[in-house]
């Protein structure tokens, strides 16, 4: 692997060790038909590289946002980070423990407790047949954190009030709640195992705006109170701008730009990031004309060679079509684009 690719960012000298470190992460999906069908119907293996040599690290207490459109691989990264999907190559280290390489079951268990996830669809993420109390209680039971049933029930009530619900809501079923309230329940469940790191996979994209604000503010409040670290997955740049301290932009499985949030929004480098920022419909833009953007995202099964973005890039150069650009570090940020090559 190209040495420039291994790390997007040179580790700052004065910072603490990062809580989460992702190195050379790669995931390939096999979309081929079963062997028998391939033999009969012909046609070879079909693979999709959903995530391709992605590196980033998240410091304690930070919110790292991964932004991308469909096919960018952001949800695949989320699943690998929490241990739901094994990577094809590369590693994810959380608090010094390799999520996929750790052999000791005991260490694994302790690590799992510290990782949680909040899902996109609050209507699918809560078991409809379970009472809210049992849903929130489940992680506490699974990790044998509180042996006494009474204490456990008290803790569940505490968690429910922490996310702004009534402790008595524990006896109800999920269908009795609105989308926003359900997302609060899902947050309470995520907090139950006392995690340090929470992956939020599009946590507000299924919610209405007024409720979205409630949930985003709640997440921020909890972060301050409990010192949580977030990996925030979203396609909505305006939302990301409000929550993130650091942002990584994904395009067809590659991290094309990474920078502190303020820097990225003030001075986007990669042509794709600029295009995305231009494309977001914004209420502040009422009546303004905007730049036209060409083309659509190509099929990820068959991405363009070289820089994946070259067919849509207004600044395309001949070697963009053949050479994959390396990650070029620029201070605390990194960009994967030939435009920024030295000389």
């Amino acid at each position: 692997m190209n040495p420039a690719e291994t790390s997007l960012v040179s580790p700052g000298p004065a910072t603490d060790a990062p809580l989460v470190e992702v190195k050379g992460l790669r995931r390939v999906f096999d979309l081929s038909k079963p062997l028998l069908n391939r033999l009969i119907e012909g046609g070879g293996r079909v693979t999709l590289t959903a995530v391709d040599s992605v590196d980033f690290s998240i410091r304690r207490g930070e919110t790292y946002a991964l932004v991308g459109e469909s096919g960018s691989g952001k949800s695949t990264i989320a699943k690998m980070a929490v241990g739901l999907l094994p990577p094809s190559a590369g590693s994810i280290t959380i608090e010094g423990i390799d999520v996929w390489g750790e052999k000791s079951a005991d260490v694994q268990r302790r690590m799992r407790r510290r990782i949680q996830m909040i899902f996109q669809d609050p209507f699918a993420s809560l078991n409809p047949r379970w009472r809210v109390g049992s849903i929130v209680e489940e992680p506490i039971k699974a990790f044998a954190m509180i042996p006494d049933a009474k204490d456990r029930a008290a803790r569940v009530g505490e968690l429910l009030s922490l996310v702004g619900l009534d402790p008595r809501d524990g006896s109800k079923f999920p269908h009795e709640f609105s989308g926003g309230q359900r997302q609060r329940i899902a947050i309470a469940r995520a907090l139950a195992s006392e995690p340090h790191f929470i992956v939020c996979d599009e946590p507000t994209s299924a919610l209405d705006v007024s409720v979205q604000a409630q949930v985003l503010n709640l997440l921020r409040e909890l972060q301050e109170r409990l010192g949580l670290t977030y990996l925030f997955i979203s396609h909505n740049l305006a939302v990301v701008r409000h929550v993130a301290t650091r942002v990584g932009v994904l395009y067809l499985g590659r991290l094309v730009e990474e920078a502190p949030a303020r820097e990225l929004f003030a001075d986007p480098k990669h042509p794709y990031t600029r295009m995305l920022l231009d494309a977001v419909p914004d209420i502040e833009m009422a009546g303004k004309e905007r730049l036209a953007i060409a083309g659509e995202i190509p099929n990820p099964v068959n991405p363009p060679p070289g820089c994946h973005f070259h067919p849509r890039c207004p600044f395309v150069m001949p070697h963009c079509k053949t050479v994959v650009p390396p990650v070029l570090a620029r201070g605390d940020a990194g960009v994967r684009c030939h435009l920024f090559a030295e000389g």
């Binding site: 989308g179 604000a213 503010n217 409000h242 502040e284």
Partner: peptide, 23 residues
């Protein structure tokens, strides 16, 4: 309330979003 709750690309990102209580 609705307008204030919409995250925007302008304005101060560190400011809390306005929220309408309830649903």
């Amino acid at each position: 309330g609705l307008m204030a709750a919409i995250p925007s690309l302008a304005g101060d990102p560190d400011e809390k979003l306005a929220q309408i209580p309830g649903s």
